[in-house]
Structure formats: C-alpha cells, structure tokens
Nucleic acid binder design. Structure first.
Lengths: 118, 118
DNA sequence: CAAACAGTTAGCCACATGGCTAAGCATTTC
DNA sequence: GAAATGCTTAGCCATGTGGCTAACTGTTTG
C-alpha cells in the first residue's frame, strides 16, 4: 500500500526538470524521437553545453538515447515522469486528507459545543 | 485552452523538490504547520544549514512562514505543487496523445494496406 | 580518399548550492 | 534583569552546475 519512492531517483528527476532548456527538450520529445542536432537547433547555446543537458536528462532516466552511425537519437521515457507526478500527487493527497480531517473536526465542534480543542 | 506555465516559477519549484531534506519538510508539513525547530529536529544537519533549505522552499513559494514572537511557523502552500503536477500531467498527456495517434495510424494501415505513410 | 557532418572530449571560468562554526539578536521565562 | 530559547547573520569551504572554445573521433558522402 505504501508507495515506495527512490529518493535518489527523485533527486535526479526533479533536478533534471528544474531547467527550461531541459523541459523544452522533454516537450519536444513528446512529439516523437529526434536527433541531438534536431533537439539542439532551437536553442542558442553551443552544442557541447546542450549535450550536457541531454546527459542530465539521460542519467536521470527521463530520456533514452541510442547512437546509429554518426547520429544519436533520443526518445522520452515515461516512467520517471510518472514517478515524479506520483510523488507530487501523494503529497497533495496527504495534504488534502488533512484538510478534510480538519473540516470534520470543525463540523464536530459545531454540533458539540464543548470548546476544549485548540 | 493553452496552459500558461511560469518558467522561472517551475525552475524554482522543481529545484526546491530536487532535495530529500526539502521533500521531507514538505511531507511533514502536510500534517500541519510547524515551527522551524520542530521541522529541524529529525534532521542531522546544523540549524543554519537547515534554515537555508526552508528559504529555498519559501522563495520557491512552496511554503509560507510567519514569525510570532521568537518562533517562526511554517505551512505548506498548495498552488506551486499543483503547478508542478500540472506541468508533468500536461507533458505526459501530450506524450500519450502522440502514442494514441500512432495507434490510430497503425490501425489505419492495417485496414488500408497502402504503405505510403512514413 | 578527402571533405563534410554529427557528436564528443578536454579544459577553462563564473556562480550556485550545501554543509559547517561562531557570534549576534530578539523574545520569553525565571 | 539575567539566563535560556529560537532563530538569524556572517563568513568559510568544497563541490556542482551551466556556459564557453578548441581540438578530436568516427561516419557518411562526393
């Protein structure tokens, strides 16, 4: 029942997503696989700089790349995105549950006017 | 229709969540507000180091703090978590849509055996 | 096989991050 | 009002991150 989150993986997932260039790459890759050059084209920075962003995405497991001849193709990997989303959802759910319990408590206090809480 | 994501905000949200200490603080705060000392207690690091994690969370807008007397209380802020979650959901959805389109294409090719796509 | 192409590696630099200790400043509390 | 409490600031250090240029490797292509 208890969800198991790999903290190191979450570290890398979230860190990977904490950069506009890398998020843009992910968005681009939702439309299908692309080569390093294709992915690089819309960005101003030098290719080596860009390549390191791809590495961050890759060893965070968010994308997978494969070299064929002199071209390296990249595609998005679904699972890590799910993992990050799940962690956030779990967090939000816990928080909402707590608010629900507070509501319940508030209602209870309204009916039963003993003021011994707080 | 088009969702609007503040990139700088996303940078800070995701960066804030890319650290186990900070995620632990967020999880703790889903159970309700707490003082700096309370939040610090379960963590090994020195208080000043810990305080900086709180600052990262705060100016990423993930938590709100308020000082009353000599105690500073912190509570979680829902919206940024939502924003991050939404961005991930949007990303995943685009990706799934693309896969759906590929499925549709595959079906079409199965029925209509003309191989002029791709 | 020479040239163009697509990545890659190496190395440099500036700044950010994450940890520490030591000392300081308000606010209780005794 | 002195002492304890709860945070805060300042400053140091090591490592990580994000950018660059220059030079190199392996693969097509003319």
């Amino acid at each position: 029942m208890a969800k198991h989150f790999d903290t190191q993986a979450l570290d890398r997932y979230f860190a990977a997503m904490a950069d506009p260039t890398r998020r843009a790459v992910l968005e681009r890759l939702t439309q299908g696989p692309a080569s390093v050059s294709d992915l690089h084209a819309p960005h101003q920075m030098a290719l080596p700089s860009f390549l390191r962003h791809l590495r961050v995405l890759e060893n965070g497991g968010l994308i997978v790349t494969e070299k064929r001849g002199r071209v390296r193709m990249a595609r998005i990997e679904a699972l890590p995105v799910r993992a990050a989303e799940d962690w956030l959802a779990t967090l939000r759910r816990q928080w909402e549950d707590r608010l629900d319990r507070l509501d319940t408590l508030a209602e209870a206090l309204e009916h039963d006017t003993k003021g011994d809480a707080q």
